[in-house]
């Protein structure tokens, strides 16, 4: 990210942010509410374009791409996890996972069931989201995010609505994904969740105010 700004009217939600995230890195983004964390996620996740600046993903400037190309990148490279889960209410757990396969390439129920098994929900596959607890719903989300083997998984406050036990399960899953080489970007308020990451970036008023990448990897944020 080079000199990225996102401006809503008068408000600079992101103000000249420079940031490099390496492939395979596990990054936590922290900061007070309204500091631009979600805005940054939207831009990295190709769901929104910056007002100015460059965003290079695998060497491609997504700020210059059209709607259709952004859709393709989302589909092929990015897995998303949200604080409010966003499962489709009238589809079962396994069908929710299959929706991601459907848009990506090939819906395969067996593979979707494997993903649910991985998050410990094999026996809940035929349940509707309303029949699942918050933690279970979030694990379905994780299964949906990882089903297409994305290069990057973006999670916006993934544990914000979870109890401690489910938080730990989700963090364990993140650890596994990290060890497999998936890039993880996790927005969080939770110090423990932040501490699990290799690198913590803090945003305030749309600016990066701290980045411990220097101390960990001896690299500048630029």
């Amino acid at each position: 990210m080079k000199n990225v700004s996102k401006i809503y009217g008068e408000l600079r939600a992101l103000d000249n942010v420079n940031l490099t995230i390496e492939q395979g890195e596990w990054v936590a983004i922290m900061g007070p509410s309204g500091s631009g964390k979600s805005t940054a996620m939207n831009i990295i996740g190709c769901m929104d374009k910056p007002t100015s600046g460059e965003v290079l993903l695998d060497g491609q400037d997504i700020a210059k791409l059209g709607r259709r190309e952004l859709t393709e990148i989302r589909r092929d490279k990015i897995g998303l996890i949200f604080q409010q889960f966003h499962l489709i209410s009238y589809l079962t757990a396994v069908e929710n996972v299959m929706v991601a396969q459907y848009y990506h390439s090939l819906p395969d129920e067996a593979e979707a069931l494997e993903a649910l098994e991985r998050v410990g929900l094999a026996d809940r596959a035929k349940h509707l989201p309303s029949q699942l607890s918050g933690g279970e719903q979030q694990r379905v989300c994780v299964a949906r995010a990882l089903i297409n083997h994305p290069e990057i998984i973006l999670a916006d406050e993934p544990t914000g609505n979870l109890d401690e036990q489910n938080e730990r399960i989700v963090l364990d899953l993140f650890r596994q994904l990290h060890s497999e080489g998936t890039t993880l970007v996790v927005v969080t308020h939770d110090a423990e969740v932040g501490a699990s990451a290799e690198r913590i970036i803090t945003l305030e008023y749309g600016r990066v105010t701290s980045d411990n990448a220097d101390t960990k990897f001896g690299k500048g944020n630029g």
Partner: peptide, 12 residues
Amino acid sequence: REIGLRKALGAS
């Protein structure tokens, strides 16, 4: 929301 989600998942 569902439509937004489907799009975020890569729906054209």
